[in-house]
Simulated scan of single mutants.
Amino acid sequence: MNSSNINLVHFPAVIKLYADDELLFIANSSDFENNAALNNMYFQVQDMLIDKLGHVFKLHKTERLALSTTNDVMQLDEVIQLIQLHLSNHGACCVSKFSAHSIEDAFNCL
């Protein structure tokens, strides 16, 4: 992986796969780099990693798991919607009431 790109990620972060409401919580760079499931995946163009500041990174894999920077930044309300879908997918009730003061706080609820 290009280490300069992983150094741009402000952890914690989540992985959002295209067409899947499930989010994967990534606590730190080691969790990302050593995640066996991620290392065995093939990614779609729409798959992304979102860090605690809302920065969006594209995921891809050639020989190794890698990140590409984008100019996209998600806002707190967009992240809350993703988490609400994730929680609903797990059968949580009252997910529409889920709220957080920051993206980092929202991620830490996962």
Rank of each mutant, 00 (worst) to 15 (best):
M1C: 07
N2D: 11
S3W: 06
S3K: 12
S4D: 12
N5F: 09
N5W: 04
I6P: 05
L8Q: 15
L8P: 01
V9H: 05
V9F: 06
V9T: 03
V9Y: 04
H10R: 13
P12R: 03
V14D: 01
I15H: 03
I15K: 03
K16N: 08
L17P: 03
L17H: 07
A19R: 15
D20T: 13
D21W: 06
D21C: 10
I26S: 02
D31V: 04
D31I: 02
E33G: 07
N34R: 10
N34A: 09
A36K: 14
A36W: 08
L38P: 06
N40Y: 06
M41E: 08
Y42F: 10
F43S: 03
Q44E: 15
Q44R: 14
Q44K: 14
Q44S: 13
V45H: 12
Q46G: 09
D47V: 08
D47N: 10
M48Y: 05
L49Y: 02
L49S: 02
I50A: 01
I50D: 00
I50C: 02
I50L: 04
D51H: 05
D51W: 06
K52F: 04
K52C: 15
K58F: 09
H60T: 11
H60W: 15
H60N: 14
K61M: 12
K61Q: 15
T62D: 15
E63P: 03
A66Y: 08
S68C: 06
T69E: 15
T70H: 07
N71I: 12
N71C: 07
D72H: 11
V73P: 03
M74C: 08
M74E: 08
M74G: 02
Q75V: 11
L76R: 02
D77F: 10
E78H: 03
E78K: 10
V79G: 00
V79K: 00
I80S: 00
Q81L: 15
L82D: 00
L82A: 04
I83Y: 05
Q84I: 09
L85M: 12
L85C: 10
H86V: 02
H86N: 12
S88E: 11
S88C: 07
N89P: 01
C93T: 11
C94D: 13
K97S: 10
K97H: 08
F98V: 10
S99M: 07
A100E: 01
A100V: 01
H101I: 12
S102R: 05
S102C: 03
S102G: 04
I103E: 00
C109I: 05
L110G: 00
L110T: 01
